[in-house]
């Protein structure tokens, strides 16, 4: 049942994240990306079914964890996703910061170096 109680939280995370990502400001987009990552991790956690609180560790002297142990796979998946998400986030953070310094723009509308405004018309000869 806990899954149903937690599902709205995933929805709330996603809603907040998408709202922030739609913003023009790079720093808000970064926050949105982080929240989205956390929402996804929570989603994977719920998808592994929330079970009683026995950690999935094999007790000393036994060959298998107790019957009540939680599902360890989502935890492994989430740990991987957190690490990767963290690495990408730091990269984007540094990138956004440097873009702010060099391009003098936190607003993505002003980042038009790669796609110039008033792009020239295609060549008309031939």
């Amino acid at each position: 049942m806990t899954e149903f109680l937690m599902a709205p939280f995933v929805g709330a995370f996603f809603a907040a994240a998408i709202y922030l990502i739609l913003s023009r400001s790079v720093i808000r987009m970064l926050l949105g990306i982080t929240i989205l990552g956390n929402g996804v991790n929570l989603l994977i956690f719920i998808m592994g079914r929330v079970s009683p609180e026995v950690p999935p560790i094999v007790p000393a002297g036994a060959l298998r964890p107790s019957e009540l142990a939680a599902n360890p796979l989502p935890q492994a998946l989430i740990l991987t996703a957190i690490v990767i998400g963290f690495a990408l986030f730091t990269f984007l953070l540094v990138l956004g910061y440097r873009a702010y310094q060099e391009l003098d723009a936190d607003n993505t509308d002003n980042m038009r170096l790669a796609e110039p405004k008033n792009a020239p018309r295609p060549p008309m000869s031939y």
């Binding site: 996804v40 989603l43 994977i44 998808m47 592994g48 989502p74 998946l77 990408l88 990138l95 170096l113």
Partner: peptide, 30 residues
């Protein structure tokens, strides 16, 4: 400078795409 500009767009959208992939993964596992 132009590379920074391109990398911001490339980075955000590709990161978003892999996050959607992860959502699909979570569902298919569940």
């Amino acid at each position: 400078k132009i590379q920074l500009d391109g990398a911001v767009k490339y980075g955000f959208l590709n990161f978003l795409a892999t996050t959607f992939f992860l959502v699909g993964l979570g569902y298919i596992y569940g």
